[in-house]
């Protein structure tokens, strides 16, 4: 294939990946921004979203779109609920100590993953897309559903953006992120904001997973990949910067496809991972973010 169409395909793939990544990484970024903790179990919330989508669509039968819409509404709520419970039972009780939280969320990672193994089983299970058509470009074909994933993710992101910037809940969240003590003095129940943020973060990951599961399959070990990618995005975008996260997700999603044109993909993954580590060392505020108040 010529370079032009190749680049076009890489761009399409990059956009799909970026769209899902935006949702997943935004969740991680929110949690880090507001609560100042790293949630290692984030990928498992993603996995739970995909698994729940499989349950729900299987339950409904009939036209796949029906079950899918219900899953898209229900899975984030359920996963958010699980995250909320985890936050109350564990994170709150270690007072959000950054290191204790990491260890605790590693524990949660195993608990969620292995409980899924016990209930859902070890197999990869497909979820039918709500609709399917193939778009034929002159050089190659492409899944129409994937193109719609981009749109759906954009809509969800706009909704999240609206909540964060235009609602009272968002205001409270931003206030807490900006200065926890002051927020508390102004009568904000910081404690409840944290639980809410943790649940929303998990819910966003689950929403991303529901969108992507018809393209991939639900599997109990699928949380690892989105976790690493989200880490990368959040670091490049600047820890805690939401705008940076979105820009970085686009950038990473697009780059990932294009880099693999030039290098062996395994080598490309090595180099990009190393580059990200160096960014975190030498520009901890991220490539685009300004240094935040911490």
């Amino acid at each position: 294939m010529d370079f032009g169409p190749f680049l076009f395909l890489a761009t399409l793939e990059g956009l799909v990946q970026a769209a899902v990544l935006c949702l997943t990484a935004l969740g991680l970024s929110l949690v880090f921004g507001v609560m100042r903790v790293v949630n290692v179990a984030h990928g498992e919330f993603f996995m739970l979203g995909a698994v729940l989508a499989w349950w729900v669509t299987g339950w409904f039968g009939g036209h796949p779109a029906l079950g899918f819409v219900v899953a898209l509404a229900l899975a984030p709520v359920l996963v958010g609920g699980i995250a909320w419970a985890g936050e109350r039972m564990v994170l709150k009780r270690v007072s959000y100590d950054p290191e204790a939280t990491i260890v605790a969320t590693i524990g949660m990672l195993y608990i969620i993953q292995q409980t899924t193994l016990l209930t859902f089983g070890p197999d990869a299970r497909p979820v039918e897309p709500p609709f399917y058509f193939r778009v034929q470009f002159p050089w190659f074909g492409y899944s129409g559903y994937k193109l719609c994933v981009i749109v759906a993710a954009a809509v969800l992101l706009l909704a999240a953006w609206f909540v964060i910037t235009r609602t009272r809940l968002g205001l409270v969240m931003r206030a807490t992120q900006f200065d926890r003590e002051t927020a508390q003095n102004f009568g904000i129940a910081v404690d409840r904001v944290y639980a809410m943020v943790f649940a929303i973060g998990a819910g966003l990951a689950a929403a991303g997973a529901v969108l992507v599961v018809p393209v991939q399959q639900a599997h109990y070990l699928m949380g690892g990949d989105p976790l690493l990618l989200s880490f990368i995005v959040v670091i490049i975008g600047g820890l805690g910067s939401i705008r940076g996260t979105l820009v970085a997700a686009l950038l990473i999603g697009l780059c990932d496809g294009i880099i693999s044109v030039f290098f062996s993909p395994t080598l490309a993954k090595m180099l990009s991972t190393l580059a990200v580590a160096l960014v975190l060392v030498f520009r901890p505020q991220g490539l685009m973010g300004a240094r935040q108040r911490g």
Binding site: M1, F140, K269
Partner: peptide, 19 residues
């Protein structure tokens, strides 16, 4: 065309298939 072990999406490797 070698696919790295951690990959979960493959579309972007497919254009490398010569016509």
């Amino acid at each position: 065309i070698a696919i790295p072990p951690t990959e979960s999406s493959f579309t972007r490797y497919l254009p490398r298939i010569p016509s």
